[in-house]
Design a protein around this nucleic acid. Sequence first.
DNA 1: TTATAGATTGCCT
DNA 2: GGCAATCTATAAT
Length: 225
Amino acid sequence: MGSAKALRDAAIDIAKLRPLPASFYDRDPRVVGPALLGKIIVRRRGRYWMAGRIVENEAYLGSGDPAAHAAAGRTARNFVLFGPPGRAYVYFIYGNHYCLNISCLPEGQAGCILVRALQPLAGLERMARNRGVDLRELHSPARLRLLASGPGRLCEAFEITRAEDNGRDLTSPASGLWIGDDRHHPRNIGASPRIGITKAGDLPLRYFLRDNPFVSGPKAPRGTR
DNA sequence: TTATAGATTGCCT
DNA sequence: GGCAATCTATAAT
């Protein structure tokens, strides 16, 4: 199968991956967002594992960003945002979906990156099972986009939940959910307003890889700049 | 191919 | 009680 070959190819790359240190995230989200494009999220579940390249994300600032969950201050829901950098902030939305964020800035300062879309690299069969996608249709580009193109979709594909993953340290492979640097530095980064928010909708804080087919949205990336 | 509504839970006011 | 950093099915073009 082609997907089996893709898994083997990706396995070689994953072995070389080095986890991004906490210092990587200890910066302004507007810096971390573009820097995270091209980086690889790895999920290990026992002897199974999955990996995907970050192709789209959004920056949320602390105070001064009315669209951020941290805008109203620290609560039981968002306390991870005020903790150390490089931790998973997972929240539940619209009664159906989880979304994965990564805390930025030093402890005491809120700010994060919302991961919006991944390009599946390894473990495609398990992602397909998690997402209810027919394994026999994974050769179709349109079907592949259903795996992890969208913040809710990628959490379902990677088995990310608030109960299990909120607060998880993403800088250590031992945690089973971490982000690696393959030293691939993409060019051609686009920016646009953030998706699905009602406040501060004009700020261009959404970052994506231009021309990458796994960026979320009906077809082409909405907005450019 | 695009537009619209419905689902469904938990957080915050 | 209202609403949300979404996704899917269904309808209409």
